[in-house]
Computed example of a mutant assay.
Amino acid sequence: MTMPFLVPRAPELPAATWTSYGLTTLTALPLVARRRAPVAVLVAVMATGALYTFTVDGPGQPLPYTGLVAFYTVAELSSPPKRLGIAALTVAAVLVSVGLDGDDMRELLFSLFVFAAAYAFGRFTVTRKAYLRAVEDRARQLELTRRIEAEQAAARERARIAREMHDILSHAVSLMIVQAEAGPVAVRTAPERAEAAFDAISEAGRDAMAQLRRMLGVLRENEGAPDAPREPQPALDGLPGLVERVRGSGPAVSYEVTGDPGAPDLAVEATVYRIAQEALTNVIRHADARTVRVRLEHGPEALTLTVTDDGRGPGGGSGLGLVGIRERAAAHGGTAGTGPGPDGRGFRVRVTIPRARPPETESKAGARTRTGRTTEVGS
Rank of each mutant, 00 (worst) to 15 (best):
D101H: 06
V41E: 00
P354H: 07
F54W: 15
M46F: 00
A118P: 02
P261S: 11
R214Q: 11
A87V: 00
T281Q: 14
Q152N: 15
R312A: 07
R295P: 07
R220D: 11
A225Y: 10
L84R: 09
V283R: 07
A225H: 14
A16I: 08
D227A: 11
A139M: 10
L266F: 03
E221I: 08
H166V: 06
T90L: 00
A200G: 15
G250R: 00
L42P: 01
L26T: 09
Y52D: 04
A194L: 05
E157C: 04
L266Q: 12
E221C: 06
A365R: 14
V377G: 02
R128M: 03
P226A: 13
L31F: 05
A37T: 06
R163D: 14
T369Q: 13
T361I: 09
L303P: 06
V43P: 00
V91W: 01
G238T: 15
R220Q: 12
G58M: 01
A120R: 14
T27S: 06
E136F: 02
T90M: 02
P14H: 09
V96K: 01
V39E: 02
V253Y: 12
L219W: 11
M3K: 13
A329V: 04
E151L: 13
D199V: 13
R146K: 13
P358L: 07
T127E: 10
R245N: 02
P300V: 02
A287T: 08
V91N: 00
L242R: 06
R206N: 14
A93W: 00
Q61I: 02
P8G: 12
R230C: 07
F54V: 15
T2H: 09
A235S: 15
M209R: 15
